[in-house]
C-alpha cells in the first residue's frame, strides 16, 4: 500500500506559499515564479495517476516545480548563450583584478565585521537581491550549484556550458555577489 496519498483540493492552501518561496529564490521575476507554481499544480493534477505514494505529496510537488524551473532556464538558452559571450568579453575588462591578475585596489575584499555577519530576515532579502543582480546565466548556475547542490557536470550538461566557462562563471558570480553584499550590507 502507498505510504502517501494526494489531496489536490488542499494543495493551494497548504503548499502554494512554500512553492512560491522556492521559486522566488531561483527565479528573478515574481510573475514568472507565480506562473511556474501554477504550472506545477496543473502538471501535478494531470499526472496524478503516476504518483506512487513513495514520497510525500509536498516532495512530489517540489520535484515537479524543480523540473519546471530547469525547463525555464533551458528556454532561456538563447539569452544564456549571449550572456556567456558577454561573460567572456567581461573577462577582459575585469574590475576586480589588475592586469597581472591580482586584486585591484578597488576590487580587493575589505574586512567584514562579525556583527554584520548575521542571518536575519533583512539580510536574507539583501542576499537575494544581490543574487538577482547576477545575469541570467550566472544566477542559474549559481543557484543550481550553491542552493540546490547540483554538481558541475550536471549543470554544464543541462545548460550546455563548457567546463572551463563554468568555473569562470561561478567564480565571477561569487566576486559580484560578495561585492554587492559588501556595498549594500557590510558597510
Amino acid at each position: 500500500m502507498a505510504k502517501h496519498q494526494l489531496h489536490p483540493e488542499q494543495w493551494i492552501d497548504v503548499f502554494s506559499d512554500l512553492l512560491l518561496n522556492y521559486a522566488l529564490i531561483r527565479i528573478k521575476e515574481r510573475e514568472i515564479a507565480k506562473d511556474l507554481v501554477q504550472e506545477t499544480f496543473l502538471t501535478a493534477i494531470r499526472t496524478k495517476e503516476q504518483y506512487r505514494g513513495e514520497i510525500s505529496e509536498m516532495n512530489w510537488l517540489f520535484l515537479i516545480l524543480k523540473s519546471r524551473i530547469l525547463d525555464h532556464y533551458k528556454k532561456k538558452k538563447e539569452v544564456l548563450e549571449s550572456q556567456l559571450k558577454e561573460a567572456d568579453d567581461d573577462e577582459d575588462s575585469d574590475d576586480f583584478f589588475n592586469s597581472t591578475g591580482h586584486w585591484s585596489k578597488n576590487g580587493a575584499p575589505n574586512e567584514w565585521t562579525t556583527d554584520k555577519m548575521v542571518r536575519s530576515a533583512e539580510f536574507m532579502h539583501v542576499l537575494n537581491e544581490c543574487k538577482n543582480r547576477l545575469n541570467e546565466v550566472q544566477n542559474a548556475v549559481f543557484t543550481m550549484k550553491y542552493i540546490d547542490g547540483e554538481d558541475s557536470e550536471m549543470i554544464c550538461k543541462e545548460l550546455n556550458i563548457s567546463s572551463s566557462n563554468y568555473w569562470v562563471l561561478v567564480h565571477r558570480a561569487k566576486l559580484k555577489l560578495r561585492e554587492c553584499l559588501e556595498k549594500n550590507w557590510m558597510t
Binding site: 512560491l20 518561496n21 522566488l24 529564490i25 515574481r30 542571518r119 542576499l127 537575494n128 550553491y146 561569487k174
Partner: peptide, 14 residues
C-alpha cells in the same frame, strides 16, 4: 555566503 545561501528563506506569500 555559501553556508548562508543554503538557509535562504524569503517568507514570500501569495
Amino acid at each position: 555566503i555559501n553556508r548562508t545561501l543554503k538557509q535562504i528563506d524569503l517568507d514570500e506569500k501569495f
